[in-house]
């Protein structure tokens, strides 16, 4: 019996990183969005490999189902053809790339110095999340609900036509 987990992992990681690169470098905004959706799906596969089944599905529903559609509608509403590509300043790009590489290498070094392995498999993820979310994190839960309400109201008020 061959363990296919590494194959799935490397495939998903490659797709996620590749599409993330395309999100950054693609010229057309709609292509950026489509590559971001691919990144979301590949990352959901990674989360499934980490035994976060419920969160992976919730992330797919929310990010791909709601967020991407919201972006798509906005891009369709606005007339983005007037935006021309800015001439790349290679000096700034090189500086930004250097800083970002240092950041990434720092993260990786910090993570590599720890001893890591999978914990024992949690049998029922939704039950364990619910048990903690509705008891210890009840205030956080309510505050996040309030945050969503405020975000919705502010979006409506910002867009509303002046009378």
């Amino acid at each position: 019996m061959i363990d296919i987990t590494p194959i799935i992992f490397y495939l998903a990681a490659l797709i996620a990183i590749g599409s993330a690169v395309m999100v950054v470098v693609a010229h057309n905004t709609i292509y950026n969005l489509l590559f971001l959706i691919i990144t979301f799906i590949a990352t959901a596969v990674l989360w499934l490999l980490l035994h976060a089944d419920f969160l992976a599905l919730a992330m797919l529903f929310i990010n791909v189902g709601a967020l991407a559609v919201l972006f798509m509608l906005t891009i369709m509403l606005l007339d983005l053809h007037k935006i021309k590509r800015v001439k790349t300043n290679w000096l700034y790009t090189a500086i930004a790339g250097g800083c970002t590489s240092i950041l990434a290498i720092m993260f990786i070094i910090i993570a590599s110095t720890q001893k890591l392995r999978h914990a024992k498999h949690i049998s029922n993820e939704i039950r364990s999340i619910g048990n903690v979310l509705y008891t210890h994190y009840f205030v956080t839960f309510e505050l996040v609900g309030l945050l969503l309400l405020v975000a919705m109201l502010s979006a409506v008020i910002l867009i509303k036509e002046e009378q």
């Binding site: 990183i17 993330a20 990674l46 950041l103 990434a104 993260f107 993570a111």
Partner: peptide, 17 residues
Amino acid sequence: MLNMHAYFIVSSLLFAL
């Protein structure tokens, strides 16, 4: 068993990108 550090490399690269 897959090394857990590989996951960290992916997440760091996503953030950095």
